[in-house]
Design a protein around this nucleic acid. Structure first.
Lengths: 253, 253
DNA sequence: AGGAGCGTCCCACGGAGTGGGACAGCCGAG
DNA sequence: CTCGGCTGTCCCACTCCGTGGGACGCTCCT
């Protein structure tokens, strides 16, 4: 394993040697990705591994209850991943700090409230409170593109790591990239980012960054509602206040 | 690897060959178990592995963001375990079915409400409400002994798999075991189990089973409060109703 | 400087993981 | 009933990846 393959390997292929861990996690991811429970054969195709290997590895994961085996032979995510996930430090701290604030925001607006953290090219939802009106499936563990969503922009605007922003905006054509930079400037000035139906048509979202004690962004709080009933201008101060409040509570603890 | 060691291995030791997966998961568990973030050396002692091995394996887990590396070199659980955990099927379905009911129960009583599923000799908490936000686990992933807690007894009383009950009650001295069986009979008759300070001193808990569509128990809902301010007799009907309501919602979806 | 602690890296060794293929069970079609 | 196609599992020779003692570099104390 290991990042550098000391001997140059010719030919395309995947190469770069795959460790056992990669295989196990590929299986877990494949299971996660599929909405319902998954058959071994399906996993084999999705992960590009021999069926026999998947069978063996999956059996190991089942033994450890990272997967559960259903009566029909398919597998789903097991209890153990839940136990682990529920203990992940950063999400927990953010969530406990955010919970009461999210609720206040929800009571004040009735719209969908969510908290997000950044990962790669996406934002990962930690928790969401459903709004009263039309619902896109928003739930914990869900991902949304960082570049286009309000929460993503709120995060990126304050992201200290320039390389992250550069890498993401590299996918844009030059003038879109400069427009994007400009937008981030505005976000920095106002502490709120907005998305008016770009990421999800008909839905307006407003988001504000959340900072940890050392003043680095760790996520964003967002408010989203139908374009016709929600007013971004009106919501902005509320969301900004929520972001600030979460940051304060996070530092306090 | 594999369960049966075909050749008898003499001497004590651990033996029984340990697979890579076991090692990885031992590390994850060790990290989970410790409240705060953990050093590599500490993990090495806790898991009984050479430091060098732990370092390498942990690095792999960090690469995959199953662990996060803090500035001081310690590690904690990463975002990825959270993402996985948030998608585990059974907990999710139970939680979404349970959330509104838990909230009602909380509003009616003000006491601590939790839902639990069974695993081995313990009950695992899926979610606990102290605040008003549904779906925000206060202390999810926590474990309690199945034998002594209200939720454990509520589950065991209806557990179709006799071997589970037998195996657990095997640890009791004979007359305690028969007393336990008798108590389970009462639970079956009333649909509620009670624990008055045995598992946790000064705390009274009442629990009721939750059934899936096929009428098998999958967990329990519990209500817990301080012994002096909570009345088990009074709470019982509410908890029983909550259990029924959850079961109904679970079958409906 | 010296020492004690940490985490990482190196690399010869060997056992653990690999996966093609045989196999058994379960359907629905012929 | 028998066939073919579909599952998931098991076997086992081959080999490659994980192993871990020990060297190393680092940061803190004393």
């Amino acid at each position: 394993m290991y990042r550098l393959d000391t001997y140059g390997m010719r030919s395309a292929q995947t190469a770069a040697t795959i460790s056992v861990l990669d295989r196990y996690l590929a299986i877990l991811d494949a299971v996660k990705e599929s909405e319902r429970s998954t058959s071994i054969t399906e996993l084999a195709t999705r992960t590009n591994m021999p069926k026999s290997t998947v069978s063996r590895l999956a059996a190991g994961l089942v033994d450890q209850r990272f997967l559960v085996r259903n009566a029909d032979g398919t597998v789903g995510l097991g209890l153990r991943v839940f136990e682990l996930g529920a203990r992940a430090g950063l999400p927990r701290r953010l969530m406990t700090a955010a919970a009461p604030v999210m609720r206040e925001l929800w009571e004040a607006t009735g719209d969908r409230v969510g908290i997000w953290v950044h990962h790669g090219a996406e934002m990962v939802s930690l928790a969401a409170v459903a709004g009263r009106l039309p619902m896109l499936p928003t739930r914990a563990g869900m991902r949304s593109p960082a570049l286009t969503t309000a929460s993503g922009k709120a995060f990126l605007a304050f992201c200290a790591d320039r390389t992250v922003v550069d890498r993401l905006s590299a996918e844009l054509v030059p003038d879109a990239a400069s427009g994007f930079r400009h937008e981030l400037d505005l976000v920095r000035a106002s502490n709120v980012a907005t998305d008016a139906g770009v990421a999800y048509p008909g839905i307006v979202a407003v988001a504000s960054p959340v900072f940890s004690a050392d003043r680095t962004v760790i996520g964003a709080v967002s408010l989203a509602g139908p374009a016709d009933s929600m007013n971004a201008q009106h919501a902005a101060p509320l969301v900004r206040a929520a972001g600030l409040s979460m940051s304060r509570r996070l530092s306090a603890a």
